[in-house]
């Protein structure tokens, strides 16, 4: 049975109230619900496992300590957590400026593939992801954020504008510009890979 957004929101508010009342399971529930997607967001922006783990930890630490400040009327808990994580990612790439990136770390952990997937298909999928990761690194941080939030996290333009702290129109143009640049840098390999993927499947 699928839950409506309204009932989901009520459920989240109940979990927050439990956490604020001192119930540790409330914190655990919030972590269990958002940790994976928040980690993916951090990793897609930083493309470094260790940094992504650190930012995840810092973001939840800040969120749990300041949970009493969270206002459900202003933003959803997801948007609030994403805003915290994105601002910490910005600090990190301001510090590092992506001088060097260890490409071998990108696929340090295996993504569980379907048992029926052929090794060739898995290799092509891996190549496609590697190309996209490389192309993401070539984007400016703001465009990368917009692309990752839109296509990696499936957020609406309104949510993107809230997380990035910009008007909705700016978020839209950043997604469009990021899309264009990614397509331009992936054009030589992107279409070929796509065709191969279609042939293998």
């Amino acid at each position: 049975m699928s839950r409506t957004p309204r009932s989901k929101q009520t459920e989240i508010e109940a979990v927050i109230q439990r956490a604020l009342a001192g119930d540790q399971s409330g914190y655990a529930d919030i972590y269990a619900q958002y940790a994976a997607s928040l980690y993916r967001l951090c990793y897609s922006l930083l493309l470094n496992e260790q940094d992504a783990e650190d930012i995840l930890q810092e973001s939840f630490l800040y969120a749990f300590k300041n949970l009493h400040r969270y206002d459900a009327a202003k933003a959803s808990l997801k948007t609030w957590l994403y805003t915290i994580a994105v601002s910490r990612c910005r600090n990190t790439y301001r510090r590092k400026r992506f001088v060097t990136v260890d490409i071998s770390q990108w696929f340090g952990f295996e993504i569980k593939s379907a048992a029926a997937e052929a090794p060739e298909a898995a290799a092509i999928r891996r190549d496609a992801k590697e190309s996209i990761a490389k192309a993401l690194l070539e984007l400016t941080p703001r465009l990368r954020e917009a692309i990752v939030l839109r296509y990696g996290q499936g957020m609406t333009y309104r949510e993107i504008s809230e997380v990035m702290g910009c008007p909705q129109k700016t978020a839209e143009s950043r997604v469009r510009l990021g899309h264009q640049r990614l397509r331009k840098s992936l054009q030589p390999v992107g279409l070929g890979l796509l065709e191969e993927l279609l042939r293998v499947h």
Partner: peptide, 14 residues
């Protein structure tokens, strides 16, 4: 867009 939507969510799955 389909390619991005297929590949980006799997990037960095913990």
């Amino acid at each position: 867009t389909q390619e991005l939507e297929r590949n980006l969510p799997t990037l960095g799955r913990p």
